[in-house]
Write a protein that binds this DNA or RNA. Structure first.
Length: 271
DNA sequence: ATGCGGACCTGTTAGC
DNA sequence: TGCTAACAGGTCCGCA
C-alpha cells in the first residue's frame, strides 16, 4: 500500500490523535517483522509522552523524550488509531496504547515493515543516514538529478527508485513520472539531458503532490469503523494499464519487467 | 563504486 | 468451480 503519499497521509491522520499523549502499554503480538521488533520498547515506552510524529522518506518517526520509534510500512503495512478495546484482527502485530484510551495499531500481512527503536539522532541512524532528498524539497531538482546521474549506467527508472538518490518514488510513481516527463524507463540515467531531468523532477513533484492531496481527502476518521487508510485513487496514466490506450496518443500502453518490478510506458510518448 | 539478484512474507488474482 | 501459479504499492544485503 504505502508509497510516500500514503505514509504522509497516515502521518497526518494519526498525529492529531496521539501526539502529546502518554504511552500506557505496548503490545507486541508478533515481533517477526522485517527485523525483530525490539522487546525493550515494552518497558522503555510506558510512561513516556509522544512529542511528535514526523516522516523521512517512507519512515515514520515517533519522537519520545528518550529516543525515537522508527516505523516503516513495507509493502502491506498500515497504521490506524483505534479504541484500545477494539479486538485485534489477524496481522495486527503491534499496539501502542495511550492514556487517552486510543491505540496506534500496526497491521501488516506480509511483514515487510519494521518497528525499530533508536536513541541516536534519527538522521544518523543506519537506515536513514544515506537517504536522498525529499522529492518536494527545493534541493531536489533537475540540476541535482542530472549531476548525480553522470556516468551512471542504470536505467532511469531504477535510478529514481533508488532511495539514495531521492526518497519516496515507488514503483507506481516511477512509471507515472517518467510518462509525464516523456522519458523511456529503460534509458540509461547517465544519458538523460539536463533539460529532461528538469521535466522529470517537476513530474515527480507534481505526481507526489497530487497524490498526497488525494490521500488527504479520502482519509477520514482513523479511529472509526473499518479504518481503511485512504488509499490513493489517482487517474493513473500508465501504471497497470498494459494494452489499454495511452491517454495522450491512443497507442497501447506497453509493459515490461525491470529489476523484478512491473513497468508501464508508452513507446510513442516516451523516448 | 556500481549493479544485480535474492531474500523476507501472505493475500489476491489470473489462468488453466 | 476449483486448484495452482504468478504477482503485489519496499528495500536491504551480499556478491561479482
Amino acid at each position: 500500500m504505502p508509497e510516500l503519499p500514503e505514509v504522509e497521509t497516515t502521518r497526518l491522520g494519526i498525529s492529531p490523535h496521539i501526539q502529546g499523549q502518554t504511552v500506557n502499554n505496548v503490545i507486541v503480538r508478533n515481533k517477526n517483522l522485517r527485523w525483530p521488533v525490539p522487546s525493550a520498547i515494552k518497558r522503555i515506552l510506558p510512561g513516556k509522552t509522544l512529542l511528535s510524529v514526523s516522516r523521512r522518506g517512507k519512515y515514520l518517526l515517533l519522537e519520545f523524550p528518550n529516543g525515537v520509534l522508527l516505523i516503516h510500512l513495507g509493502m502491506s503495512g498500515s497504521l490506524q488509531v483505534v479504541n484500545n478495546d477494539t479486538r485485534p484482527r489477524k496481522h495486527d502485530h503491534v499496539d501502542l496504547c495511550f492514556a487517552n484510551d486510543l491505540c496506534l495499531r500496526l497491521h501488516d500481512p506480509r511483514r515487510f515493515g519494521s518497528v525499530l527503536w533508536t536513541t541516536e539522532q534519527p538522521k544518523h541512524h543506519k537506515l536513514l543516514k544515506d537517504l536522498g532528498p525529499e522529492p518536494l524539497d527545493k534541493t531536489f531538482n533537475g540540476q541535482y538529478l542530472w549531476q548525480l546521474s553522470r556516468k551512471r549506467r542504470v536505467s532511469i527508472k531504477q535510478f529514481i527508485m533508488d532511495s539514495h538518490n531521492v526518497v519516496g518514488v515507488g514503483n507506481i510513481y516511477a512509471s507515472e513520472s517518467l510518462f509525464r516527463a516523456g522519458i523511456h524507463p529503460r534509458r540509461a540515467a547517465g544519458k538523460v539531458s539536463l533539460e529532461r531531468y528538469k521535466l522529470l523532477a517537476r513530474a515527480i513533484k507534481t505526481v507526489i503532490r497530487a497524490a498526497i492531496k488525494q490521500g488527504g481527502t479520502t482519509l477520514r476518521d482513523f479511529t472509526g469503523g473499518d479504518g481503511q487508510p485512504g488509499y490513493f485513487k489517482q487517474r493513473l496514466n500508465v501504471y497497470g494499464r498494459k494494452g489499454e490506450a495511452c491517454r495522450q496518443c491512443g497507442k497501447a500502453v506497453s509493459h515490461c519487467v525491470m529489476g523484478q518490478r512491473a513497468t508501464y510506458y508508452c513507446t510513442h510518448c516516451q523516448k
